[in-house]
Amino acid sequence: MLKLNVLELEKSEYTGGKSSLCPGCGHDQISNNIIQAAWENGIPPEKVAKMSGIGCSSKTPAYFLGKSHGFNTVHGRMPSVTTGANLVNKGLSFLAVSGDGDTASIGIGQFVHAIRRNLDMVYIVENNGVYGLTKGQYSATVEKGSKKKKGVANQQAPIDLCAMAINLGCSFVARSFSGSKKQLTALIRAAMSHRGMAFIDVISPCVTFANNDESYKSYNYVKANDEVLHILDYISHFSPIEEVEVPEGEYQEVSLFDGSTLRLETLAADHDYTDAVSALSAIHQSEKAERHVTGLLYYDDNVPTATDTLGLSETPLVELSEDLLRPSPDSLEKVNSGFRS
């Protein structure tokens, strides 16, 4: 018997085309996690809009959720296309993937403004520290001292996208690793249950250009230096069965918009995900120690979304009929006579 999700769909309903990425690429693992998360959450595939920019990472929407519409846009400017689609159809669930080049360099402006507007979307950066698709140049997220397979070590300070997002008031900020299946799936599921910008920075080794041990985003390096904030369990609103028994008081529960819960079994007791300063401190301390902090860094469920603030019609604008989109002949007469008087 095949397993079915809450919509009685098989997992195969959430898969996509065959990947053309390098075998072992971290991005493919993330795609698998997206498929798993969407299936487990019982998201109707037709209500998802897959969005991406340009890069190896941005190609991946072709490899997951084949039953969903998507748009592989231009380099760095996926957020604006998502914004336009969201404004006219807030009924869609936007699931976006981007790369570190796509987001932290050419697209940094749009990234910043999408957060500032709290665009209702899941925004995953598949972060490998290099431009994979143009053959391995450093990106702006590469750490000082990190070295890719060829060339010299990077000398510039990195842009930490999570820290930036927190400073901008992003409502959901997390970091994970493509090799941490359980953590990543839980975070993507939680992100899908969130309303507003859910940003996940996923370290995703580029096996071709930067998987050597001197690269801070290589598989081995991340494995050895992953500073896990908490163990995560996602408890969905439709099957609130506790899968893991944890002693009372040693976990925190995050209530998500759709009624689901993200349970954090606290390892780092001093981290407070509701406090931006605490989250930033965790990021900066691990950066200093040349490690990667992962988990739910920051969460705030009290930020209005882009469409909340615009005073729009309750009905998604694309569903409005012509009589609501085109004012009446009488109204035009009034406009004309207003000018005449």
Binding site: R77, P79, S80, T83, G84, A85, N89, G109, Q110, L312
Partner: peptide, 29 residues
């Protein structure tokens, strides 16, 4: 009911303004 049937957004630049038009058109707006 007091809701607007047209969204207006001041974009961060013209690159974004064009991208938003593209997104809106793609979604059927």
């Amino acid at each position: 009911d007091g809701g607007s049937t047209c969204a207006v957004i001041q974009a961060e630049d013209e690159l974004a303004a064009a991208g938003m038009v593209l997104g809106a058109g793609w979604a059927g707006g």
